[in-house]
Design a protein around this nucleic acid. Structure first.
Lengths: 112, 112
DNA sequence: CATCATACCTAGAGACAATAGGTAATGAAT
DNA sequence: ATTCATTACCTATTGTCTCTAGGTATGATG
């Protein structure tokens, strides 16, 4: 039985994919560049990371697809379904809870 | 060649271990309880997670050990070395950079 | 005397991400 | 013409961690 998101982190590629696609549909290759750009090159997820995430999210009904050929090159556009929106909200809430817990521990001086 | 910390997260058990030991030396079993307590039961890392982390950090020179027997039970006390302090600083900085990058992306509305 | 709490430990599985490929078309450069 | 870079898709394998599930042993409690 899968644990979904280990105990806390991981699922960051998924979080970013859902976040960016929430604003507008994109195709995989575009997303890879978009994440790099949105993070000012601080985060780079190669295609080998992003494509499997897209496929998994589509399989789970979080994303829907639309195929289009542009300049002889075929693109697969992904957009977020209602299920996907819920999934994003849950992921984000989880991420924020975990982060604040860790931040508190790290910043709190211990007794004695 | 090992990547140390994937690209961003993971290494949270390590981060917390170093953080708590920075304040005072502790033995493994104690640490497990301390993390649970410090997080108000929101985070639990079982012994099977913590012990391997301790061993790896010791192997890397980030922790030093001291053995002591109390009430017939033998304890291994860990404390942070200068190397360990550096490692914690680096881990924390990395964690914070990544988090702020992700937070920015998540919170930033995209153009059109 | 059995059970629980303390205290140590490791092996194996499972979940990701990361690397390293591979296909194919277009367009620019030589 | 042909090579190379870019666009655009894809998957299989590896690697790194976390997690579960055990196992040992002592001391305290009922």
């Amino acid at each position: 039985m899968p644990t979904t998101t280990s105990q806390f982190l991981n699922g960051v590629p998924e979080l970013l994919v859902l976040r960016l696609l929430r604003d507008r549909e994109m195709y995989g290759y575009e997303l890879v560049e978009a994440i790099r750009a949105a993070s000012n090159d601080k985060l780079t997820f190669a295609e080998g990371v992003i494509y499997p995430v897209l496929h998994a999210l589509e399989r789970d009904g979080a994303l829907s697809t639309r195929r289009q050929t542009v300049n002889g090159r075929s693109r697969v556009y992904y957009s977020v379904t209602p299920t996907g929106k819920d999934r994003f909200d849950a992921l984000l809430a989880h991420w924020q809870r975990v982060h604040s817990t860790i931040a508190t521990i790290v910043e709190t001086p211990r007794h004695a």
